[in-house]
């Protein structure tokens, strides 16, 4: 988007026929500047991220292989050695949050989108959709405390008191639940836009064959809107992976190689917050480790975007 903007303003800037007067010229220069600025900032962030990360890996105390394969993340341990810099517990924590919140948000988000797009009357939709989007405006800190003060106590009562399953005060599950709730609006809103864009003629074609409303929704509208729905899923999951505040508050600060969502864990983002708040001196191994983790997180979302782009290409059901 910004790329296109800068390109077109660049052209009109140098095209004397289209730039008639000074005012237009100033506008063109300003817009061009905006585009260039945002690109430069992005490049700058990536460069600083990766140069610090490379600095980290060039240190004798760590190496890239044990970083990627190691199962212990103890950057604050007194003994600084490669074994203490294995990032997998953090990756696992992040993925656990993403998987659990995704399995909450994707079905619920898609369900709400189907309801809004196919079942709700125009009036109801004009009330429901803005309120759903309001949900997206709640600060994530609030979600974090909601997890601690509401979800975790419920888990304690239901699982620990009734069933005897131990639930840590800080646990991945309650964080994932609130992250799931947090991303429902995005998933629902983008999916609904995609479904509303499906032409009415397709729905009529299906109705005319004796399809019920449910069949029209699930067998015609959803498949036809699939590329948009997959985008919605990817954007939702990316939000879950990058989500910071709620997981820092509710999931704990214990990097752990576990599959039990009722344990405390630490996500990549939560680690970055923890070290940043700890005033780690720049250039120190801790200060650099957050860039290594950040670069890993960046690569994960980057790969996800590439995968999603190729999925989109394959599953696109184009309609005229």
């Amino acid at each position: 988007m910004l790329k296109n903007l800068s390109k077109s303003s660049f052209i009109s800037f140098y095209n004397p026929q289209r730039v008639r007067n000074l005012r237009e010229r100033i506008i063109a220069i300003t817009l061009f500047g905006c585009g260039v600025f945002s690109i430069l900032v992005t490049i700058g962030i990536i460069i600083s991220l990766f140069s610090e990360a490379i600095g980290f890996f060039l240190r004798p105390e760590v190496n890239l292989i044990t970083f990627l394969t190691g199962t212990n993340w103890r950057p604050l341990a007194s003994q600084v050695s490669p074994e203490n810099f294995g990032v997998r517990p953090l990756i696992r924590g992040t993925l656990m949050i993403a998987v659990i919140s995704g399995s909450i948000a994707l079905p619920l988000g898609l369900g709400s989108a189907i309801y809004l797009s196919e079942y709700a009357s125009d009036r109801l939709r004009s009330i429901l959709k803005p309120s759903l989007e309001l949900l997206a405006g709640i600060p994530t800190v609030v979600y974090g405390y909601f997890a601690l003060s509401f979800v975790t106590p419920i888990l304690k009562v239901v699982l620990e008191d009734q069933l005897g399953i131990r639930v840590s005060f800080f646990n991945a599950f309650s964080a994932a639940v609130v992250v799931g709730i947090m991303i429902i609006p995005i998933v629902a809103s983008i999916s609904e836009d995609a479904m509303r864009a499906v032409p009415r003629s397709l729905r009529e074609g299906a109705y005319a064959l004796g399809a019920t409303k449910f069949e029209v929704s699930t067998k015609v509208v959803v498949p036809a809107a699939l590329s948009g729905i997959i985008s919605a899923f990817i954007i939702g999951i990316s939000r879950a992976i990058g989500e910071t505040m709620a997981v820092t508050i509710a999931a704990g600060a214990t990097p752990r190689m576990t599959l039990n969502p009722l344990d405390g864990i630490q996500t990549m983002t939560a680690f970055i917050v923890q070290v940043s708040f700890g005033d780690a001196p720049s250039g120190s191994i801790n200060g650099q480790s957050i860039f290594a983790v950040g670069a890993t997180l960046f690569m994960m979302t980057f790969v996800m975007n590439i995968i999603s782009a190729s999925i989109l290409k394959r599953f696109r059901e184009v309609y005229e």
């Binding site: 032409p199 003629s201 397709l202 009529e204 074609g205 005319a208 498949p223 059901e317």
Partner: peptide, 10 residues
Amino acid sequence: MVFQKPNPFP
């Protein structure tokens, strides 16, 4: 029913 504009499913 058959419609004015062909409307095959994608």
